[in-house]
């Protein structure tokens, strides 16, 4: 009798482990790599490009270090203020002019019936998607209705209104200005926008999207918001 009970429990345990093992082994099989030669080549190329850009970045930083070292002996200040300028530019605290285009959002009046759906709402999700897409394809600076988009910009809906940096997008047309790295990227970005699905996403909300031809000089305003640095500390100097 004792044999039976212990055997029974051990059988339950064995079966339990068996089933778990079976479950996990089944999942493992799905994770096989089925990419073909050309897919792999493409991935390789992308990684290669990344490597090249990283090497370039490292070189720039090294140059800067060398400059700092020079600067130390010949009275500091020059390079440091240059760096501050650069960082301000990167953070979006300066006005920027460069090749780019603008995207204009207007209500699609042919679909708007007065008294029924005359309140046009710009979805923050679509707006965020648009910004992600622009950044993905080489945008350098973006502003929405004069609000510069920075790393800390908020785009959200507050009580039925979409707000960018707490500035409500109430009046149409809403103009989104985009500056690209150079005129070539601007053209590419423009072409991207032509085939993008984002106009369709806006169209669902009865908003028509017009993308203007690339221009040589588009000006994006500076961000007027202060960057809050609650969680930053100065780095202690390393002693060699």
């Amino acid at each position: 009798m004792k044999f039976k009970i212990s055997l029974f429990f051990i059988c339950v345990l064995t079966g339990f482990m068996f089933a778990i093992q079976f479950n996990t082994a089944k999942e493992e099989n799905i994770l096989t790599d089925s990419r073909g030669l050309w897919d792999l080549r493409e991935d390789f190329l992308a990684e290669k490009e990344l490597e090249a850009s990283l090497i370039q970045e490292i070189r720039q930083v090294e140059q800067k270090i060398a400059k700092y070292d020079n600067d130390k002996s010949a009275g500091r200040g020059q390079v440091l203020s240059e760096t501050i300028e650069e960082l301000k530019k990167e953070a979006g605290l300066t006005e920027l002019t460069g090749p780019g285009f603008s995207i204009v959002l207007t209500p699609a009046y042919e679909f708007i019936v007065p008294g029924q759906n005359d309140e046009v709402f710009i979805s923050p999700d679509v707006l965020r998607k648009l910004i992600n897409e622009l950044n993905m394809y080489g945008a350098k600076a973006i502003s929405i209705s004069g609000q510069r988009i920075t790393a800390t910009t908020t785009i959200r809906e507050i009580q039925g209104e979409t707000r960018v940096n707490d500035y409500p997008l109430r009046s149409f047309p809403v103009e989104i200005k985009v500056i690209a790295r150079n005129s070539e990227t601007a053209k590419k970005l423009y072409n991207r926008m032509q085939i993008s699905t984002i106009p369709d996403d806006f169209f669902i909300d009865n908003i028509a999207v017009t993308v203007t031809e690339p221009e040589k000089e588009v000006t994006v305003p500076a961000s007027d918001r202060q960057i809050k640095t609650y969680f930053m500390k100065t780095v202690k100097e390393e002693r060699n």
Binding site: V12, F16, M17, F18
Partner: peptide, 14 residues
Amino acid sequence: LPVLGLIIGVTLGL
């Protein structure tokens, strides 16, 4: 009994 145990264990695990 062992067979029953195995079946119970497997169903529990699954």
